[in-house]
Design a binder for these strands. Structure first.
Lengths: 208, 208
DNA sequence: ACCTGAACACCGTTCAAGT
DNA sequence: ACCTGAACACCGTTCAAGT
């Protein structure tokens, strides 16, 4: 608040940093380009030197989010070598923790604030890498012989749908809870993962 | 556009009707209370006679959306009596179709535009009824002996997470496709449903 | 190169006033 | 009861101007 420096060394980064607490406090709808500029100590037009518009700033934040998700998968893989099932659970829980603990960023990433047709190359690359990181874990499981023999892309899609859906339901308020602790999220994760792993059908049947 | 009637018979309904095409055309972010009022042919302050604020109008639209989802489940149940598996698939596909074909409404319902703490009684009731309708189908399957013997709430939660997640990924642009036809959505639905029904694990194991 | 200040066309919301 | 018009405090974005 005492910043008076006329030249910001790295205004771009400063703006991204300033945006996070605003996003967490006021949500996507409450984030204002003018507010971010003010928090960074510059005029409300300064951001246009670094971002084409408000959307570009939001995209940059979303890219960081996807990198975080990818890192969650990579870390899960590294922390549980030779145990694809633990990798699977750890990656899923990391996804869930991220969504809940950075819910404003998750909403920004997934909630139509960034229309698909306006998404830039960086964003598509980042989300693609996150998907690939999860698929690597699925492939570990297939190689180890514990996952069923279907295309990795299909299994990854199904898994991601489950995890993503659960996360969206939690942060969207479709599942009510006063306070979401990691413990409660773990219970939820175990339930859904248990169903997905074992299957809904009592006995395997023909494809519907 | 030729409406000049000073008194609207039922402005509330007229506003809700006027909002839908705007929502579909411009998305949640593009919907404006002033624009809705203008489309309904009244001044920009008239809506405040029927809705406390913009959020209340959005909530009313979301309630209709949840009623639609509930109806999708009820219809699936009615159209496939004594065949819970078909009920299951039909309900899931109805969910997916709705999300894609009314994606602006789906975004409105699920994307944080309506903060959980501000949600009114009507909205919570409507979403609860939709969940209950899906659980009824799950219970049909349990009664028929084709679904595994776990609490219906847990199976419903897991199923909904999968379906909801897939829908969100499609409309959120996480899965790219030029044009989403019902045929393409069916392919996607079969893949994910197949994984969920059969389970990811090659052989059932101990809970993770 | 980087930032500022005024300006424009928009919002949501309030309120006194009209019929 | 229901609607209007002016007004207020905000936006995102543009642009000439400053250092």
């Amino acid at each position: 608040l005492k910043k008076k420096s006329y030249h910001h060394k790295n205004l771009r980064e400063a703006l991204l940093e300033a945006a996070i607490p605003i996003l967490d406090a006021d949500g996507v709808g409450g984030l204002t380009l003018r507010g971010v500029a003010g928090a960074a100590g510059v005029s409300h037009t300064a951001p246009y030197r670094h971002f084409a518009n408000k959307n570009a700033l939001l995209e940059a934040i979303a890219v960081e989010g996807y990198r975080h998700l990818e890192k969650g998968c990579r870390d899960a893989e590294r922390r549980h070598p030779d145990d694809p099932l633990r990798q699977f659970m750890a990656a899923g829980m990391a996804y869930l923790y991220f969504a809940v603990e950075r819910r404003a960023i998750a909403h920004l990433m997934f909630s139509g604030a960034l229309p698909p047709e306006t998404r830039g190359e960086a964003l598509r690359t980042a989300s693609g890498s996150a998907f690939a990181a999860l698929r690597d874990i699925i492939e570990n499981g297939k190689r180890a012989g514990i996952f069923i023999d279907r295309p990795a892309d299909e299994l990854t899609l199904s898994t991601l749908a489950c995890v993503h859906g659960l996360a969206m339901m939690v942060i969207g308020g479709l599942i009510q809870e006063r306070q979401w602790t990691r413990r409660k999220l773990q219970e939820l994760g175990k339930i859904v993962a248990g169903t997905l792993l074992d299957g809904l059908l009592r006995e395997p049947g023909p494809p519907p």
